[in-house]
Nucleic acid binder design. Structure first.
Length: 910
RNA sequence: GCGCGCAUAGCUCAGUUGGUUAGAGCGUCACAUUGACAUUGUGAAGGUCUGUGGUUCGAAUCCACAUGCGCGCACCA
């Protein structure tokens, strides 16, 4: 059996088979776990669903390594461990992708040419076809997810959840239809939410001008073309320059348009910026729209004129000079007109931040439209709180002050960022003019369209009022009785469905009640225990999950949220297709193995921080995996096969030492995973495995025989500690221990062992190690091979007396003995109080003298430092006793060493 | 403008609530090598912990300021 283990571990030949064996055993499903009924505590993780049309990248590799390590650890701890897998239909990005493909195939306008049904069908076909790809790649990562619970953000069950949520929120008055300025992507022909906008810097020109020669106030703008839609000029109420004009209306002829400009007062105007006066364009700026609303509320309304259409061109209302022109053309036209008229006072180059669509990359236009909104400030009926309030509660006091309903975010600083963001949250625009997504469960009797060019919104009759007239709206999954109802054309923001992910995947709303006397999934597994996600979606997703779950279930979605950073390349650059540094994790797996990839992405990765990925790191991890393999091969081979060893009784000092070290390691690794420090857990494991176990204990085992039981005992348990991080190699090696097919490491028990090391044993073993290292060091310095050393005599050996065989074996010096007779003419090396005489072929007396002297000098220096520390009365008075005792011991050790060195120096002189 | 993060060995990073002579991996140098492993072993070199000041018996760790790098948000008229 033993000799069947191949010389090197070849992951690519075993990984797929092992994964299939786990699937066949059904152990990814908590109900199928051994002793399922005794596993009372659930541990649930939902997978951030990868985009259905996506391809696995290194970010996914990190996420899967994180999730799967956690879930495997919890499973080993004996919990009902559930990792729910799924995919995301990713509404807008997916439709964009398919449209792009169709256009590449020669279609000019897929939406027009195919129509809604045919285009959606095409997208669905594409999504379904590529779904398998990403899911297979997730499996390649070794992710032990419960595939029987596989979910999709756009499947029937999730659609039920989305409709239910929407309807409840509508009935609670939180979702409303409102006419407001939205973020509009001309390229995408859709709205987007505030969170989906990326601001970029670009050079721009700030123009300062007057509307007409008679107009008393000059204004500044970077968007002269929108000024044909101005209906007011706002100034600060205390600004003495303009105070006198407040309330007055001026009729001007501006770039071919007749405008009535009213001077209004607003605190939002910064008197020191530009001319201190702001041209108000209610239709095309959120701030200005706010002023429009404020004026209306204050019974002093101003008009609103839409001058840019959804096609990104100037509307008829913009006036004959610019109508039909693109925004850029119109800008040039207006600027030219201004300078012709002598109205332009200044053109200044500035750097401007503009919002762009994070999916279409075009500059976002602000356009007024009637859309569906979620009100985050309104009181929820019966709760006395707004959505914002419960979002705050969730991370501070816990929902309704309940401590078990609190979300803890790692790293801690993310909590603060979250709260800042919640405080600044505005109403969320829910509707998208996309076809791929959950259609809004609302029905209209009269069709309502967003404003396009050609439609007039001019005049005192504001569009909202005009449109609301005669329009009937019904919200529900299917159309109500009666003629003429048509479903809303728009779809929901994709994050609306992702927001309900933690509970929609557990059957909400249908399985809210128990069935067959068994607790429902929702009861058993919600709130989920832990979730991980990248910081780039903490606002988009984390916040919305908290919002949705707190609203719908009165429960937090998860107890702990772990925010991770980005994986970057060796130079700290983002991985991307465009910069050509993209790495396919599948290639890495094929070359180095999945375990090596997992270890390398987890190592050096700390919460919330970016980390780097590079080949040397994977190589190092691959070597580590191979080391583990070879340790196992050696132990199992020597023992004539593997077997479970229930308990062991240590026979020697080294046995006691290694068992205690292992015990300590197991405890530490558990504690580190408990606080999500995966990187350090791996480091601790590596350190034990490679240094303590392989380099020391295994080498000692070659000298002191009869250690099979201890070796097998530790190996089996060490494999379990490694299993969360390196599932494949550990399962493959574990086959040697397994009694039958069902005996798998994936369902083993996390080792709890108590082997304490007495302080005597501890220092005795440390002494052995120091001695061995000192001898090796000495030989290396003197360029002498161990085999050329005739003998070593250890004087004052003390506890080392019984370790001469080990010292000889580990240093590879033939003869090591303890003795009390001082060998002639050899200068010893001093380890503590022990003197070690090494019989070398030839030694230079002068250099030996210098060596001893330099050691005395160093020791003297340390003694002096130590003494002065202990002479400090403040230190002795205030430091804890434990620290002082430690310092005293250190001084004593140094003095002992000093005495021994001094003796040698004298011997040398005489 | 407001806020956040980072700065430790040549490189990439640890360093748990302040307490030995600050660690690891990779890299470098020297040596070893026919049975667990060259995907190896042994040893070494390499750091005034960005700077200044402070708190403290004691600071890489806490505080303030400064410098550099990265990021977020807002304004962007």
């Amino acid at each position: 059996m033993a000799n069947e283990m191949p010389k090197a571990y070849e992951p690519r030949f075993v990984e797929d088979g092992l994964y299939q064996a786990w699937v066949d055993a059904g152990v990814f499903t908590p109900e199928n776990l051994p002793n399922a009924d005794q596993r009372t505590e659930a541990f649930t993780v939902v997978m951030p669903p990868p985009n259905v049309t996506g391809v696995l990248h290194l970010g996914h590799a990190l996420e899967n390594a994180l999730m799967d390590s956690m879930i495997r650890y919890q499973r080993l701890l004996g919990k009902k461990a559930l990792l729910i897998p799924g995919t995301d239909h990713a509404a807008l990005p997916t439709q964009a992708k398919v449209e792009k493909m169709l256009m590449a195939e020669g279609m000019k306008n897929p939406r027009q040419e195919l129509g809604r049904e045919a285009l959606v069908a095409k997208i669905r076909d594409f999504a379904e076809a590529s779904k398998a790809t990403i899911l297979n790649q997730v499996k390649k990562m070794g992710t032990s997810a419960d595939w029987s619970r596989l979910a999709y953000t756009f499947d029937e069950k999730r659609n039920v959840a989305v409709n239910e949520l929407f309807t409840r929120m509508y009935n609670d008055g939180l979702i409303y239809r409102g006419f407001r300025v939205v973020n509009w992507s001309v390229k995408g022909q859709s709205t987007s939410s505030d969170d989906e906008i990326e601001t970029i810097e670009r050079p721009s020109v700030l123009y300062t001008f007057k509307y007409s020669k008679d107009f008393p106030i000059a204004i500044s703008t970077t968007r002269p073309e929108t000024k044909v839609g101005d209906t007011a000029v706002a100034v600060h109420p205390t600004d003495d320059r303009y105070k006198a004009f407040i309330g007055k209306t001026f009729e001007v002829e501006f770039a071919g348009s007749k405008l009535s400009i009213k001077v209004i007062a607003s605190d939002e105007v910064d008197p020191s910026f530009g001319t201190g006066a702001l041209g108000v364009t209610p239709a095309h700026s959120p701030i200005d729209f706010g002023m429009y609303e404020a004026q209306k509320a204050g019974q002093d309304p101003i008009e609103i004129i839409q001058v840019i259409g959804t096609d990104g061109k100037m509307t008829v209302e913009a006036g004959p000079m610019v109508a039909g022109q693109t925004v850029e053309e119109a800008r040039a036209t207006v600027v030219a007109w201004l300078s012709e008229q002598g109205l332009l006072q200044e053109s200044k180059d500035i750097v401007q931040n503009v919002g762009t669509s994070d999916r279409y990359s075009d500059v976002i236009e602000s356009i007024p439209m009637t859309q569906w909104w979620l009100d985050v400030n309104k009181e929820i009926p019966g709760k006395g709180k707004s959505l914002k309030d419960i979002m705050r509660e969730a991370v501070t006091t816990g929902l309704e002050g309940k401590a078990d309903q609190k979300v803890t975010i790692t790293p801690e600083r993310e909590t603060k960022l979250y709260l800042d963001r919640v405080n600044n949250l505005r109403d969320w625009c829910l509707s998208r003019q996309m076809w791929w997504g959950h259609r809004i469960p609302a029905w209209h009797r009269t069709r309502t369209l967003p404003l396009t060019n050609g439609e007039s919104a001019r005049g005192s009759e504001a569009p909202r009022e005009r449109r609301a007239e005669g329009v009937e709206i019904f919200v529900g999954t299917s159309a109500p009785e009666g003629e003429g109802w048509a479903q809303d054309e728009d779809t929901l923001d994709t994050w609306f469905s992702s927001g309900s992910w933690t509970f929609s995947t557990l059957g909400w709303p249908s399985s809210a009640e128990a069935t067959d006397g068994k607790p429902s999934d929702l009861e058993q597994f919600h709130p989920t225990s832990w979730i991980q996600m990248g910081y780039e979606i903490r606002y988009l997703w984390l916040m919305r999950m908290i919002l949705m779950s707190a609203y719908a279930l009165n429960e937090i979605p998860f107890t702990d949220a772990y925010i991770h950073g980005l994986l970057k390349d060796k130079d700290g650059k983002k991985f991307s297709k465009s910069s050509g540094n993209n790495i396919d994790p599948i290639d890495v797996i094929n070359e180095y193995g999945c375990d090596a990839l997992r270890i390398s992405v987890l190592s050096g990765n700390t919460p919330g921080n970016d980390s780097r990925y590079y080949t040397e790191k994977v190589e190092a991890s691959r070597n580590l995996v191979n080391k583990l393999w070879n340790i196992s091969r050696f132990i199992i081979g020597n023992a004539g096969g593997a077997r479970h060893v229930e308990s062991v009784t240590p026979k020697t000092l080294s046995d006691r030492w290694i068992l205690a070290r292992f015990s300590e390691t197991a405890k530490k690794v558990g504690a580190l995973i408990d606080r999500y420090d995966f990187s350090l857990a791996i480091e601790v494991l590596r350190d034990f495995t490679w240094n303590d176990f392989a380099d020391w204990y295994l080498e000692i085992a070659k000298i002191e025989k009869g250690k099979d039981d201890v070796l097998l005992y530790i190996l089996e348990r060490l494999l379990i500690l490694w299993h969360p991080f390196a599932p494949f190699v550990t399962e493959e090696i574990y086959k040697n221990f397994a009694a039958d097919d069902k005996d798998m490491i994936i369902v083993a028990k996390w080792p709890v062992i108590e082997h304490e090391l007495s302080s005597d044993d501890g220092s005795a073993f440390a002494h052995v190690q120091e001695t061995v290292i000192a001898i090796r060091n000495y030989l290396s310095e003197h360029k002498v091979l161990p085999k050329d050393v005739e003998s070593i005599t250890v004087m004052n050996a003390g506890a080392l007396e019984s370790a001469t065989e080990i010292i000889s074996g580990l240093t590879k010096v033939k003869s090591v003995r303890s003795g009390n007779e001082r060998p002639e003419s050899i200068t010893p090396i001093v380890v503590g109080s022990v003197q070690i005489f090494i019989q070398l072929p030839a030694v230079d007396a002068a250099s030996e003298k210098a060596r001893i002297e330099s050691e005395i000098a160093t020791t003297t220096k340390f003694i002096a430092a130590q003494e002065s520390k202990l002479a400090n009365t403040d230190f002795v008075a205030r430091a804890p006793e434990k620290v002082i005792a430690g310092e005293r011991q250190k001084l004593a050790d140094l003095q002992e060493r000093y005495a021994a060195l001094k003796k040698e120096q004298e011997a040398l002189v005489s």
